[in-house]
Design a protein around this nucleic acid. Structure first.
Lengths: 190, 190
DNA sequence: CGTTAAAACAAACACTTGTTCAGTTAGGAG
DNA sequence: CTCCTAACTGAACAAGTGTTTGTTTTAACG
């Protein structure tokens, strides 16, 4: 009657492989065979652990968001000045979505619309994260519209995944430069 | 011996349909049958006009870039002040990539990495366009690194495709707000 | 008209996709 | 040891993919 749970649970291993492949190739180009091949399994075996391929993505996506949230909260902890908080949050965000761990990268790589059956749920998960930013932006109280400011900020940050290279600027430097660009005047007189 | 060229060339019709589908669903989720179905053809018929599915994408992509370039150049024509030029260019860019015509939207929707066989070529085409921005940014001469400034700017602009809605702010308003945010001080003292 | 080539059809091909499922293996419980 | 079941295999399936090929239709030209 007791539940038998072996410690050798490979569910997480599958998720790790899936996260890496989803992040690198996108959801559709990463096949079940790619994932199982990376962990020395057969295609059918994943269906003991997960309901479907979409189910794997959802799990990866949730974990990805969890890690970004964790990273951001770690960075802003104890920081009180609104703009310093914004910078800290940007650093946390950037480090997460550029991390080779790949979980957080999936959030940027696969767009909700890529998987129609999950679109609503993925958007909800993402929105929950963005609401964290709503507070951060509101506290810094920039001159322009808060909503646009947040969208521009996250848009610019996430796009870094397209051009970021390990031998270039660090995520921290990029994040700091981004907030600086939005905070301080850079243009000439009008 | 004379070349027979019918005026009823459906190549463009195919491209229009492909552009729309690529923009809405992405390259891999838009099938040849989707494209031909939209123009009342059979799957095999496109291979008279195009070498492959990737060939269609390349044609759409090139046309998309051509249209963005055209839009940007139209908007900056005659504008001399560097920051005004930047704003005008942003408006041109935004209107193009948010246009329902779909050609330019493909540039943002499908990333070079989505089609490995074409990655180099797509990147080259895109780079050619971005070099236009190199000049614009350099002329405005913002305080921060030109390269980062351009990447942030285009990243934020392109991400608007994810949240833009027809019943909200116009592309022009969004573009203007973006440049304004990067130009004027919005933050508190430090 | 008949000839010629453009343009599209019709039907398949070879392959990959996610998924299913009866059977096998292996480790903990009694 | 025996039983149980978590974990996985092996092999297939049905649907969908891009593409090819031989044939037919369509329109321009002499």
């Amino acid at each position: 009657m007791s539940i038998v749970r072996r410690e050798n649970n490979r569910s997480e291993v599958i998720l790790d492989a899936a996260a890496l492949l989803f992040a690198n190739r996108g959801f559709h180009k990463a096949t079940i065979r790619d994932i199982t091949g990376a962990v020395d399994m057969l295609p059918g075996s994943v269906y003991y652990h997960f309901e479907s391929k979409a189910g794997i993505l959802l799990a990866v996506y949730r974990e990805g968001v969890r890690r970004v949230v964790e990273s951001v909260e770690d960075h802003i902890a104890g920081v009180v000045d609104p703009w310093d908080r914004l910078t800290a949050a940007a650093v946390g965000h950037m480090e997460a979505i550029l991390s080779p761990t790949a979980y957080a990268r999936v959030i940027v790589m696969v767009r909700p619309g890529d998987v129609p059956e999950l679109a609503a749920e993925l958007t909800a998960v993402r929105d929950e994260y963005e609401s964290l930013w709503r507070g951060l932006v509101a506290d810094a109280s920039p001159a322009i519209d808060h909503s646009l400011f947040r969208l521009f900020l996250l848009g610019a940050a996430n796009s870094s995944q397209l051009w970021f290279r390990d031998d270039g600027r660090s995520p921290r430097e990029i994040a700091t430069a981004l907030i600086d660009a939005l905070r301080h005047p850079v243009g000439g007189a009008r």
